[in-house]
Design a binder for these strands. Structure first.
Lengths: 192, 192
DNA sequence: CGCGTTCGCCAACGGTTGTTGACCAACGGT
DNA sequence: ACCGTTGGTCAACAACCGTTGGCGAACGCG
């Protein structure tokens, strides 16, 4: 068991590839898709712009490779029903602040079709299944998950992208205390 | 009383100026700041790109002139306290769907510093005073207004920008029914 | 030690962008 | 009827973008 994963070519340029992805994430998160130039990414990574093209094919390919989001949402099954809101909000805040991938995805998704579609994919593949575990009426699952997404994305937008001072000033505990009941109601309340 | 406002130069080019602003709003709303080119705006307005420069100085000046937002928020004074949430959400939905200025501002604000600052201005000048009318503790007004903004902006983001299918499928009544209690609580609930 | 493969840089291409200045035509007060 | 002012077009500039191909150098397997 030398390799943990079956695909491990272990090329000599892995360090460069990783540096490119790191720089790309940072640029996309700070500038959005259009203003994040390949030249700037290459400069941050300390290499030539043509290397980015060789390793990732195009700017769109670079974006696709750089913004691979895994929300690592917890299993809500063993949790008491009245704690799912608090658990989800806490988890979202932690994931959002531990790296800048989500900020990059949100910034790009707001003015780029491919970015918006990728964000839809994250919603469908990662948030919907979790909502499925706790929603009462199966038919309402997409709507309830979407409502949850509006609250979480809205907080992320105001706090990490637009940087509204009052939203930035809130502590994590305060945010959880305010948003948890909202998410809790969106997911589990019997009535609209 | 020929002129309703004191400043009414009534230039011969007013029609062109208005056409430029209309086209600019549409382009900014559809494409964001960078991809909305002056050339495309001029083409939509049926004139030469250099006219845009002469009338609005620069692309940034065009954006500043095109995205002048007036939320026309209602006076919440005479309203029963338990109806402010529903009234605000209903009003927000109406304003957001009646023209594309807010979508343009949101799209641009997500990846442009000037856009984000302008959105902060709208928040401070228009939402904060309204929150002042209904918040219990004066010290909590900015935080409560910001929480309201996160929910409204999050819904706008998911519905009008990212176009999450479940968020688009919701009717206005359903949105009001779901969001009104949230906004109501953010603004008027005594306790976090 | 050879030699194919990988890594990286350099220079350039075609295209697009914001922006500018010269030039023409229609207006409108005197 | 004149002529300054305004509305509008055209062509071009400099800068920047994504992208490409060629060339040298370092690697690593035989």
């Amino acid at each position: 068991m030398v390799d943990s994963k079956p695909t491990a070519p272990s090329r000599r340029s892995d360090a460069t590839r990783a540096a490119i992805l790191d720089a790309a994430r940072e640029r996309f998160a700070a500038d959005g898709y259009e203003r994040a130039t390949i030249r700037a990414v290459a400069r941050d990574a300390g290499i030539d712009p043509s290397m980015v093209m060789r390793y990732y094919g195009s700017k769109e390919g670079l974006f696709a490779a750089a913004v691979a989001v895994d929300l690592k949402l917890p299993d809500l099954g063993p949790l008491p029903r009245e704690e799912v809101g608090s658990a989800l909000v806490t988890h979202f805040l932690a994931v959002w602040e531990e790296n800048e991938v989500l900020t990059a995805l949100l910034r790009v998704g707001a003015s780029n079709q491919a970015g918006a579609e990728r964000m839809q994919g994250v919603f469908q593949d990662q948030l919907l299944p979790v909502a499925q575990q706790v929603c009462p009426d199966p038919e309402q699952i997409p709507a309830r998950a979407a409502l949850t997404a509006t609250q979480m994305l809205g907080m992320a937008l105001a706090r990490y992208v637009l940087r509204f001072p009052p939203a930035v000033a809130l502590s994590r505990q305060e945010i959880v205390a305010w948003l948890a009941p909202t998410v809790q109601r969106y997911l589990t309340a019997p009535n609209p």
